[in-house]
């Protein structure tokens, strides 16, 4: 069966377009949901076949997170060892977060993080045969926005929703910021952390963000209006 870009593909479909491009001795990158089998590109997920430049990928709806390099994730510290934390990043295996991967950390000066705390970290090593490795610093040794997340509320959602609210075409977060000041971390492992000044606003914000999953881009304004109405109790 012929699969063109923009078609729905099922696992096992052969992507001729990628093969043809590769035969012209051009570099082709197989992204999420595609794999190389017997020298041809085969889809391993069901979803929409997309292409950007020379990258082919399958845009699918999924809840399970699979670590990949350079992803920003929210993890829950599960336990400590002599050298590192074990962190749950909603993958089947725990990830490693070394003590030295924090800003200003030395062998003697360890980060003050306890079991059960939330950390916002970057994946630096994602090998299918090894535990994923996380860091809380960038390449220059600064922590930037990474690190421990204090207070607030973390909730899980589908990976689709995180991609959606981070998409440039989605103005939800921008519209929400006009109604109520908030802090938000949307991590690609399907976890969102929010913090506002009041508990009620946090609960309403969580609800609004979760509802965005079933809302089209052009209807985000209505969604935010409803949020503002509920928050202030005044009808606009």
């Amino acid at each position: 069966m012929e699969c063109k870009v923009g078609d729905v593909v099922m696992p096992g479909n052969i992507i001729q377009e990628a093969d043809a491009l590769a035969k012209e001795s051009k570099k082709v990158v197989l992204g999420n949901g595609l794999r190389l089998e017997n020298d041809s590109a085969v889809s391993s997920k069901s979803g929409l076949l997309c292409k950007r430049k020379n990258i082919f990928y399958v845009d699918s709806y999924q809840k399970k997170y699979i670590p990949a390099k350079n992803d920003n994730v929210i993890g829950i510290v599960q336990s400590k060892t002599l050298e590192f934390f074990w962190v749950d990043i909603s993958y089947s295996e725990l990830a490693i977060l070394p003590y030295l991967a924090f800003e200003g950390a030395t062998k003697k000066n360890r980060p003050e993080i306890n079991v059960g705390d939330l950390v916002y970290a970057k994946v630096v090593l994602a090998n299918p045969d090894l535990e994923a490795e996380l860091v809380c610093v960038d390449s220059t040794g600064k922590k930037g926005k990474l690190g421990e997340l204090k207070d607030g509320l973390m909730f899980s959602c589908s990976i689709n929703l995180v991609r959606k609210i981070l998409n440039e075409k989605c103005n939800l977060l921008h519209l929400l910021s006009k109604e109520c000041p908030y802090e938000l971390v949307a991590a690609i492992n399907g976890r969102i952390w929010i913090n506002t000044k009041s508990l009620r606003a946090t609960i309403l914000l969580r609800d609004t963000i979760l509802e965005a999953e079933h809302t089209a881009y052009n209807q985000m304004k209505d969604l935010v209006d409803r949020f503002a109405t509920e928050l202030t109790g005044i009808k606009i």
Binding site: L30, G31, L48, C50, R52, Y57, D59, V162, R163, N167
Partner: peptide, 12 residues
Amino acid sequence: SDDEEKETIVLN
């Protein structure tokens, strides 16, 4: 549908 933002692509 057209371009997605960066986070979509997970390179193997």
